[in-house]
């Protein structure tokens, strides 16, 4: 009898298995966004609080913490993107087009998931080059430093954000990307429950509402920062 491939391989190759991977990796990213937002909002507390928080993240577990987080997030992101692209290719191949199309229940957000996803992916790459790798035009960020109470110097993350959002194109791209991210989340968060088999017709409206509230919080929270900096001169003398 021929040896069948391991269950993990057939799981990944199956439609439901791949969707469960999308749901679980999406869940990791959903929790990350809330943590990321909570940290970012410290910008409204002030320069010291924000820089202390950045210093704390970079020195958590003697500097290992930030790398553990990076590996987990990058793995989740790659699996999420690879699985959704493969699923979308299969979906497109399965459908033949109607001359007369009609939609009854599918929301707009649910139908543009792949495009909102790609925009967010492009944004994440740009965002990492901007604030994490500080490459190209952003290499000047490396010169922004503050002196810590113990006499050592560390990056002035606060000033990096202020400078970063003093450019109108950066603010516009940020607003577009965050808005599409929230469209993505409004469908994605509710779908996590359905794909993991946790929803019923009784709880489905609740999860839908939860997804909308979550997306609204993310939208308002993340957009408040560039708006405050560019239009209300936060952190600028």
């Amino acid at each position: 009898m021929p040896q069948s491939p391991p269950a993990l391989v057939t799981f990944w190759n199956s439609s439901i298995g791949k969707k469960i991977v999308v749901a679980l990796t999406g869940l990791v990213l959903v929790f990350f966004l809330i943590a990321h937002l909570s940290g970012n909002l410290l910008i409204f507390v002030g320069q010291k609080a924000f820089n202390d928080y950045a210093y704390f993240l970079h020195h958590l577990l003697h500097g290992a913490g930030v790398w553990i987080a990076r590996v987990v997030l990058l793995t989740s992101l790659v699996l999420h993107v690879v699985a959704t692209v493969q699923l979308t290719i299969k979906n497109r191949a399965s459908r033949t087009a109607y001359q007369k199309e009609a939609t009854q229940r599918a929301s707009k957000s649910s139908r543009i998931m792949i495009w909102s996803g790609f925009t967010v992916l492009a944004f994440i790459i740009y965002h990492l080059l901007h604030f994490t790798a500080r490459l190209g035009p952003y290499s000047s960020f490396n010169d922004l430093t503050v002196t810590r109470p113990d006499g050592s110097t560390s990056l002035d993350a606060y000033q990096m954000v202020i400078n970063g959002f003093s450019s109108l194109p950066a603010v516009i791209f940020y607003v577009i990307a965050i808005s599409l991210l929230c469209s993505h989340l409004s469908h994605g968060v509710a779908s996590i429950f359905q794909t993991l088999g946790l929803s019923t017709s009784k709880t489905r409206p609740l999860y839908k509402k939860l997804a909308l509230i979550y997306s609204a919080v993310i939208w308002v929270g993340f957009l408040s920062i560039p708006i405050a900096i560019y239009f209300f001169r936060l952190g600028q003398a």
């Binding site: 199956s14 439609s15 699923l87 191949a93 399965s94 009854q104 599918a106 469908h187 779908s191 794909t195």
Partner: peptide, 18 residues
């Protein structure tokens, strides 16, 4: 049933509820 469904060339559920 799920493996046969995939083999037949059906797409994947994206929770549109159509």
């Amino acid at each position: 049933m799920v493996e046969q469904m995939d083999e037949e060339g059906f797409g994947n559920c994206t929770n549109h509820f159509e």
